Simulated scan of single mutants.
Amino acid sequence: MYTQNVNVKTAAQESSRKIGGKTVSYTFLVAEQKKNSAEEPDVLEFSSLAELKKLRRNCPETMRCTYFYALSSGVDKQFRHIHVAEADHFKQFVRLIERAGIDI
């Protein structure tokens, strides 16, 4: 049986915010580092997949660098990102998100 919460006064469906449901905001993280380098990797942060795709169209991956892509759903108590999905290549990362059915 399918049920839904309805506000009796207005006969409208209530939002998940009022019911107590969580809305998860995701952050896209990209770490880029030159191979065999002792330097710390550069980390870029994006709020949407469209922004990340725009960057990859303008600046494609190169063979002289290593990359790490992560989808974060927030941080824990030690301020470490909680990775929902992660991959070493952009196309692999996008496919992983699509297969998981994550709504972004």
Rank of each mutant, 00 (worst) to 15 (best):
M1Y: 09
N5I: 13
V6M: 14
V6I: 15
N7C: 15
K9G: 04
K9D: 06
A11P: 01
A11M: 10
E14P: 00
E14A: 11
E14K: 08
S15G: 15
S15C: 10
S16D: 10
K18Q: 15
K18T: 15
G20K: 11
G20D: 14
G21D: 11
T23D: 14
T23I: 09
V24N: 11
V24P: 02
S25D: 08
S25F: 13
T27Q: 13
V30E: 08
Q33C: 13
K34T: 15
K35C: 14
K35S: 11
K35W: 05
N36R: 14
S37L: 12
S37A: 15
A38Q: 14
E40T: 08
P41G: 09
V43H: 12
V43L: 05
L44Y: 14
L44V: 05
F46W: 03
S47T: 06
S48C: 06
S48V: 08
L49D: 01
L55A: 01
L55S: 01
L55V: 04
R56D: 05
C59A: 08
P60H: 05
P60G: 07
T62Y: 01
T62D: 09
R64Q: 07
R64V: 06
T66F: 02
Y67H: 03
F68W: 05
Y69K: 00
Y69G: 00
A70R: 04
A70Y: 03
A70C: 07
A70P: 00
L71D: 00
L71G: 00
L71N: 00
S72P: 02
S72E: 01
V75I: 07
K77V: 03
Q78V: 05
F79A: 03
R80G: 01
R80T: 01
H81D: 09
H83R: 03
H83D: 03
H83P: 02
A85K: 06
E86T: 02
H89L: 03
H89Q: 08
F90A: 03
F90Q: 04
K91A: 07
Q92L: 06
F93I: 03
R95L: 07
I97E: 02
E98Q: 15
E98M: 11
E98K: 15
E98F: 07
R99S: 10
A100V: 02
G101Y: 08
I102E: 00
D103G: 07
I104A: 12
I104G: 09
